[in-house]
């Protein structure tokens, strides 16, 4: 079974902080990492491979530095990797991104399952998975929390919906997005790290995957960012003074005044 896992390189946002005086992003010490939810997608791919055989192909679209996350992917079990990198891809929105990924996946041609993380930590849209499925014309299942079986060309999964779990079946090939409940991603293996160091990572350009002009990158993006700004915040709280007893007294008074209690 061949499994394609889509990865994205994102800034390690847990460290993103706003400088309160300049109100801008403090970038120091921020490393680029693989989107955390994508590592669950990769882990699931590797587990499926270990169980059913076949291989895991990790792909990402990004600048040349994004090879780093592909090397990380090798160290945790990916067999092959492909970097989609071309200046023509710059400025892609989710539509252009999924167009590009779809073209690359069509070029890979032999595959049974595409796995994406539910959403990214930076863009946070969760749109690439479903858009990709549609462009490939494949069945799509979001929020998969457990893959039950893969047999007879069909995949049976459990997925989270807001009020419970659904068991869903679809014919392969299919596209799924996974949630973090699905597994616990492993750390790299020593053999994987050794392999990752020397691995040749092929780069595919727009020409190589045969994208049509005006369908990828900024030119192929339907949405445009026209403004980026930082939410303004100033301290607004009325601080309640005194010892805990007094603070609580005042608070209860305030809540009564506001008719909340």
């Amino acid at each position: 079974m061949n499994i394609i896992v889509c990865l994205k390189q994102v800034p390690g946002t847990t460290e993103v902080k706003i400088d309160p005086t300049s109100n801008t992003l403090v970038r120091q010490g921020i490393k680029s990492v693989v989107n955390p939810l994508d590592s669950y997608a990769l882990e699931e791919g590797v587990r499926l491979k270990e169980h059913y055989g076949g291989k895991v192909i990790a792909i990402t679209m990004g600048p040349p530095q994004a090879t780093e996350i592909l090397r990380d992917a090798i160290s945790t079990g990916a067999d092959d990797t492909i970097l989609l990198s071309d200046i023509a891809f710059a400025g892609s929105d989710t539509l252009a991104t999924s167009t590009t990924l779809a073209k690359a996946i069509e070029k890979i041609n032999k595959y049974d399952l595409v796995i994406c993380g539910r959403q990214t930590l930076d863009g946070d849209t969760g749109q690439v998975g479903p858009e990709l499925a549609e462009m490939l014309g494949l069945p799509f299942i979001a929020y998969v929390s457990k893959i039950e079986t893969i047999a007879d060309g069909k995949i049976k999964v459990q997925r989270m919906v807001e009020d419970g779990y659904e068991t869903i079946e679809a014919a392969l090939p299919a596209v799924i997005t996974v949630v973090k409940e699905i597994n616990v991603p492993r750390l790299p293996s020593l053999r994987g790290l050794t392999r990752a160091k020397s691995a040749q990572i092929p780069t595919w350009t727009a020409q190589e995957i045969g994208t049509e002009k005006g369908t990828v990158g900024q030119a192929g993006s339907a949405t445009w960012v026209v403004k980026v700004f930082y939410p303004q915040r100033v301290q607004t709280a009325e601080m309640l003074k005194g010892d805990p007893e007094a603070q609580v007294e005042t608070l209860i008074e305030k809540l009564k005044e506001a008719k909340i209690i």
Binding site: F140, G164, T167, A171, A174
Partner: peptide
């Protein structure tokens, strides 16, 4: 293209 088998 997908078939719902069960809901819990």
């Amino acid at each position: 293209k997908t078939r719902l088998l069960n809901f819990v």
